[in-house]
């Protein structure tokens, strides 16, 4: 107990745990919702998904990493770190007390850990930061096609399905416990109502997540070529707009390869 780090944690345990709880909702949970709903737009066609991705990237390639770190990665790392401390201090006993609440308590911890590992893998696999490790396969200029190619292998899609479902359970169940933690719902009846809402949220998000995986699975053969064509067109449109806006100084930027050719490994536009 004389360890200063430990006594700092001890003195601010309430604040840290409450920030932990809050961070699960905003920004981490909110990001999960936006992310899954954005992904689900693939079901409306590669063009729709591409325009959603473009919208996100329109905040600028220099600003985006700052936003990502400030509102996604760092809060997530904070949530995960405190989460691991909490898990280490608990003693699950679902074997002796197999009540629903206790099963959910245990699953909340298990899904949190699985989601954490999944997210690390997912970032390496698709986010450009993973490129040095042989990942970073998502190309924001070819959103659907690059994601489809990356996720279509059976093992990848199975792991994504598991990861997404764990993250969704963790969020939806966490929503319910967050309300108890902060005292939003206090009576058993209110807890039941809140539980119903959490289940609806969870099922909707799971549908969005699995739906987008299914949408990517469907992008094969001719459909994949069509997606690439759409993406290339949209990319050219964007480039043309850029040139108009910025005069000739952008004219040297990379030109998209022809339809059907392998997607270039470029992110800067």
């Amino acid at each position: 107990m004389s360890d200063p780090a430990e006594s700092f944690l001890a003195r601010h345990q309430f604040l840290i745990y409450r920030l932990f709880s809050l961070s699960g909702l905003v920004p981490v949970g909110a990001f999960l919702v936006v992310h899954l709903l954005t992904n689900a737009s693939i079901l409306a066609g590669p063009g729709t998904f591409q325009s959603r991705v473009d919208l996100i990237h329109s905040i600028g390639e220099r600003v985006l990493p700052i936003v990502e770190w400030a509102f996604i990665f760092l809060p997530m790392l904070f949530h995960a770190t405190v989460g691991f401390v909490i898990i280490a201090n608990g003693l699950p006993n679902v074997g002796s007390y197999p009540y629903v609440g206790n099963v959910r308590y245990t699953l909340q911890r298990a899904t949190g850990m699985i989601a954490f590992v999944f997210i690390i893998g997912h970032v390496i696999h698709l986010h450009w930061m993973g490129k040095p490790l042989g990942g970073g396969q998502f190309d924001p200029h070819a959103a659907s096609s690059s994601a489809a190619v990356a996720i279509q292998p059976a093992l990848a899609s199975a792991l994504y399905a598991i990861g997404v479902l764990c993250a969704v359970f963790h969020f939806a169940n966490g929503l319910w416990t967050l309300g108890i933690t902060w005292g939003l719902w206090t009576s058993p009846a209110a807890m039941r109502r809140a539980n119903a809402v959490s289940i609806v949220v969870g099922v909707a998000l799971a549908a969005a997540g699995l739906g987008s995986l299914a949408g990517l699975q469907g992008l094969r053969g001719q459909k994949l070529d069509d997606a690439r064509a759409i993406e290339a067109n949209m990319h050219e449109d964007r480039e043309a707009r850029e040139r108009l806006l910025h005069g000739g100084d952008r004219a040297t930027s990379a030109v998209r390869p022809a339809v059907g050719a392998p997607v270039a490994d470029s992110r800067g536009g």
Binding site: A10, R11, Q13, F14, Y17, R18, I86, N89, G90, N93, Y97, Y99, G101, N102, R104, Y105, Q108, T177, I180, T181
Partner: peptide, 18 residues
């Protein structure tokens, strides 16, 4: 709200069950 307070509860709800 001090160390070992309400925040440690993990909402397993075993307490109410037993």
């Amino acid at each position: 709200t001090g160390q070992g307070g309400i925040q440690v509860c993990g909402n397993a709800q075993n307490c109410v069950a037993v």
